[in-house]
């Protein structure tokens, strides 16, 4: 080995990414609803080791959620119908956020609501709270009967809610989390960009269903639920690829990520960063391991800056 290559292999790769003017020390975050309010995992991993934590979807007032059973495991994945149960934004800001702020990682708040006004109210409240780095607008959660859902049925409605919420958050960057339950994800991605979204989170869960054949009733009391986990990964990679080609704003890849290699697929497909979801449940320190794994991947291949990987998909000759 020559001296130069020795030096190159020891140089720590640049892992930081920028999303709408906010610096993330590395492109790994945890996905909303799969990491609680972050603190639940503080004994099991180093929260400082990841770029960010997206906390459970918050509404202004607490929401009770759906009756159980709420989760059911399916091949390489799971269905959930939690129904937006959360402690409310006020309680989060008073009790959880001050503790989370002691960690050197970015806190992003996922927001939920039944009506447009619910979204605007919680957005205005959070926009004034120090310690939050961005808002992630969840218009795609399939688990609540009224509201929410229709904002992602028609790109025009997606445009409206994005534009209105953006106005209500002059300080904080607004990410919009897209539903995969659409025919053309690019169309929705463009609607969000046109409406002023600062980034896109792609994707939320797929609507699914499982049936107990003995009792002939749905496995979830809510009937349908959101499918997550490795089972959805190939579709998620495809959607990230399509969305990132359709817009200029950063895309954050989500869906079934459980290893470094999975995260790399998303980055190469066009994601600026990734979120790890369901895998946190069965391997609580997986996000930390992926952050380390990405660094190792870059180091071994002499990739100086992780951003070089973003959208670096190569065509066949």
């Amino acid at each position: 080995m020559t001296k130069e290559s020795d030096k190159a292999s020891f140089k720590a790769p640049h892992m930081a990414v920028d999303i709408a003017g906010v610096r993330f020390k590395n492109p790994v975050m945890t996905a909303s609803g799969t990491f609680g309010y972050g603190l639940e995992f503080s004994n099991l991993m180093d929260l400082n080791s990841i770029g960010g934590i997206v906390v459970k979807g918050l509404s202004t007032a607490p929401i009770k959620g759906n009756p159980p059973p709420r989760v059911y495991e399916t091949p390489s994945g799971m269905l959930n119908a939690i129904g937006w149960q959360n402690i409310g934004a006020t309680e989060f800001v008073a009790r959880k956020l001050p503790v989370l702020m002691n960690y050197d990682t970015n806190v992003i708040v996922n927001i939920v609501g039944f009506e447009l006004d619910d979204y605007l109210e919680v957005t205005r409240f959070l926009n004034d709270c120090p310690g939050i780095k961005a808002l992630e607008l969840n218009i795609s959660c399939p688990n609540v009967k009224k509201g929410g859902f229709h904002f992602n049925k028609d790109p025009k409605d997606t445009y409206t809610i994005t534009a209105e919420t953006k106005k209500a958050s002059p300080r904080l960057p607004l990410w919009v989390k897209l539903s995969p339950n659409v025919t053309d994800i690019a169309e929705f991605a463009k609607a969000c960009e046109d409406a002023g979204a600062d980034a896109l989170s792609v994707i939320n869960t797929f609507v699914g269903m499982a049936i107990d054949v003995e009792k002939r009733r749905p496995r979830l009391r809510f009937m349908t639920g959101g499918l997550s986990g490795p089972a959805i990964r190939p579709i998620a990679v495809r959607m990230v690829y399509e969305a990132s080609r359709a817009v200029k704003i950063p895309v954050i890849g989500i869906g079934g990520i459980a290893s470094t290699e999975d995260a790399l697929e998303f980055l190469i497909a066009g994601a600026r960063a990734v979120q790890v979801g369901t895998a946190n449940f069965y391997q609580p320190d997986i996000s930390q391991r992926i952050a380390l794994g990405l660094q190792e991947y870059c180091r071994l291949r002499h990739i100086e800056d992780i951003n070089e990987l973003v959208g670096s998909l190569q065509p066949y000759e």
């Binding site: 990491f35 609680g36 639940e40 995992f41 009756p67 799971m78 449940f281």
Partner: peptide, 24 residues
């Protein structure tokens, strides 16, 4: 209950309760 995380994070394992004031 069926569990996702056991850490209190996923809210998948809930049971319906009533406190002394009847609040569900």
């Amino acid at each position: 209950a069926r569990m996702g995380c056991s850490l209190g994070a996923c809210l998948g394992c809930v049971v319906q309760t009533r406190d002394s004031r009847g609040e569900e």
